[in-house]
Each structure stands twice: as structure tokens, then as C-alpha cells.
């Protein structure tokens, strides 16, 4: 068993090397946010503490779109408090970037090696198709979310430290306490196992498309859910939405965030996220996801000589 698992660890290194742009994207995003925050703080242009990032973002949005929506947004954002806004903005940016990274990774991870024929090189090594697919699934379900979570939290802490450390940025709202930030960090890291479970059918579906489709896997990967959605309009059931798309945001995350904002302990917040795990639905999704991954493994084996 140990001998079977060891290559998977080293295949994770392969995934890191092959998809290094995805890791660089997370680090680049974090550095860009910190640099922007630092520059605006040192420049003293900010209207209020952490709010300035959102302020300038919405101003930029306004100038691009040519309307006055941004002004209204700034007004409502100010009511929420600068540091919470900064934290939420960073969290949303990282969540959206992770979604893009996972979609790109899921669709490319088995397709690219067929397209560039490097599949034949990997097939020449004493590693099985199941080990390769397992390493890719672990990367998508655990490693990528963990890297984005850690990078995002590091960015949040760095931005918090900048706003605490530079007196000129003191705004009308008091800075978020370290205790609340610790609670938020614990929630983000604690939710990762649940996220991996929720993501299994979605990533499994993308990897199956990546392994099975001869050209343009994105068309099938998105086309099938769209077709099911269309059928749903005519009253037919939409299993793809129920099993694959809906669990992408784990149930209870919204309540958990509110719980942290209300100053409750991280354990209380995490209970909101873990409670749905006692229901059969998430585990049904895991079984479906594993079936997709098994099918992807079969396709990888079958497509070896078609590359």
C-alpha cells in the first residue's frame, strides 16, 4: 500500500510543476492586493482605512462602465466598516480566482497531456493511470484550495497589519480585532475538508470531460449542465444541478460567516458547515464524483495510443 501511495506524492510534484501558473496566480493576486493596499496607505489618499481598496476599485469600475453605480456602492460599503470590507473583498477575490483556477485545472489536467503527446512519456514510467488520476484529483480537491486559502489568509493578515501599522490610514471604523481575524482564518481552513467533499462531483465531471473528449472539453463540460437546465425548464429533473453544480458552495457557509461576524467562536461557525455532512446528499455526490474519476481513469488508459 505504501509503495502504491509514494508515487502519488511525487506525482503531486508533477502537478505543481505542470500547473505552476495556477500557484503563481494566487501569489500574484496576494502580492498585488498588498502592494495596492500599501501604496494607497502610504499615499494617504484613502478615505478610510481598509475601505480605500474598495473605494478605488469602485471608482475604476465607475470610470470603465461610465455610470454612477460606484458612488452608491461606496456609500453602502462605508456603512459596513472598512476593515470588514477589505477582508470580504480579499476573500471574494480569492474565491473567484480559485473557481477560475479549478475550472481551468479540471478541464486541462488530463486533456493537455493527450494534446501534447506527453501522455506517452508518463505511460513509459512505472506509474498507473489510477495513481496519475488520484494525484490530479488530490491537487484539485485539496492542494489548490489549501494554497489559495493560505495565500488569501496571508494577504488578509498582511493587509490587516498594514492598516494597523500605518497611523495615517486610521479611518472612522475601528480595525477588526485579531481575535475575529483568527476566527475567520479558522473558519476558512476548517471548511476545506467539507469543500473537498462538495467539490468532488464537480471536479470529477471536469476531469472526465478532460479525459474523454477529443476536442474542446469545455463545450461538453458546460454544454451538458446547460442542456439539463434547459430540460429543467420543461419540467424534467436536473440531476447535474443537484449533484454537481449546487454543492460548489457548501451549504451553511453563509451562516458560518455571519456567525464569525457576530463574534461567535470558530467551532460554532464550523458547526453550520459540518452539519449538512450528516445528510446523505453530500455523500451521494462523493460517490458520483468517484464514479466520474473512475471513468476518467478508464478513459486515460484507453486513450493512450490515440494521443
Amino acid at each position: 500500500m505504501k509503495q502504491r501511495l509514494r508515487p502519488i506524492l511525487w506525482l503531486l510534484l508533477r502537478e505543481y510543476l505542470e500547473h505552476r501558473r495556477l500557484w503563481a496566480l494566487a501569489i500574484g493576486l496576494g502580492l498585488a492586493i498588498i502592494a495596492l493596499d500599501l501604496a494607497l496607505s502610504l499615499g494617504g489618499q484613502a478615505p478610510a482605512g481598509g475601505l480605500h481598496v474598495m473605494y478605488h476599485s469602485t471608482r475604476a469600475l465607475e470610470s470603465v462602465s461610465g455610470n454612477r453605480t460606484g458612488t452608491h456602492m461606496i456609500g453602502s460599503l462605508a456603512a459596513l466598516g472598512g476593515y470588514d470590507l477589505l477582508l470580504n473583498t480579499i476573500a471574494v477575490l480569492f474565491a473567484l480566482t480559485l473557481a477560475v483556477a479549478l475550472f481551468s485545472y479540471g478541464l486541462a489536467c488530463l486533456y493537455d497531456e493527450r494534446r501534447d503527446r506527453s501522455l506517452l512519456f508518463w505511460k513509459s514510467l512505472p506509474i498507473s493511470d489510477a495513481q496519475c488520476v488520484a494525484a490530479k484529483a488530490i491537487t484539485g480537491l485539496a492542494v489548490l484550495p489549501l494554497v489559495y486559502a493560505v495565500t488569501g489568509l496571508t494577504t488578509v493578515w498582511a493587509a490587516w497589519a498594514i492598516n494597523i501599522g500605518l497611523p495615517m490610514t486610521a479611518g472612522p471604523t475601528p480595525p477588526m480585532t485579531a481575535a475575529r481575524l483568527v476566527g475567520f482564518s479558522a473558519l476558512v481552513l476548517g471548511v476545506l475538508p467539507v469543500y473537498a467533499i462538495s467539490l468532488t462531483p464537480g471536479l470529477g465531471w471536469l476531469m472526465l470531460c478532460s479525459a474523454a473528449v477529443r476536442r474542446h472539453p469545455a463545450i461538453i463540460a458546460l454544454g451538458m449542465p446547460l442542456l439539463c437546465a434547459l430540460l429543467n425548464v420543461f419540467g424534467l429533473p436536473n440531476p447535474i444541478w443537484h449533484w454537481v453544480a449546487a454543492p460548489l458552495v457548501p451549504a451553511g457557509v453563509g451562516h458560518a460567516l455571519q456567525s464569525i461576524e457576530a463574534g461567535q467562536a470558530p467551532a460554532t461557525a464550523l458547526a453550520w458547515v459540518y452539519q449538512p455532512m450528516s445528510q446523505p446528499d453530500p455523500w451521494g455526490g462523493v460517490i458520483l464524483g468517484l464514479a466520474f474519476l473512475a471513468a476518467a481513469t478508464y478513459c486515460r488508459r484507453r486513450h493512450a495510443v490515440l494521443a
Partner: peptide, 27 residues
């Protein structure tokens, strides 16, 4: 060991990384 065709080495790998991976993946 086999070479299935020309140009099947992954283009995104560096030479040193290819050696490092081979060390780990091929006993």
C-alpha cells in the same frame, strides 16, 4: 523503458526537473 515517439517529453518541464522526477518515479 520505452520511447514511444519523438517529442513526447513534457514541454513545460525543465531538464533538471525531468531528472528529479525520474529519480522519484522510476526505481
Amino acid at each position: 523503458c520505452f520511447i514511444a515517439d519523438v517529442a513526447t517529453l513534457p514541454r513545460w518541464l525543465r531538464v533538471a526537473e525531468a531528472i528529479r522526477l525520474m529519480v522519484r518515479l522510476h526505481p
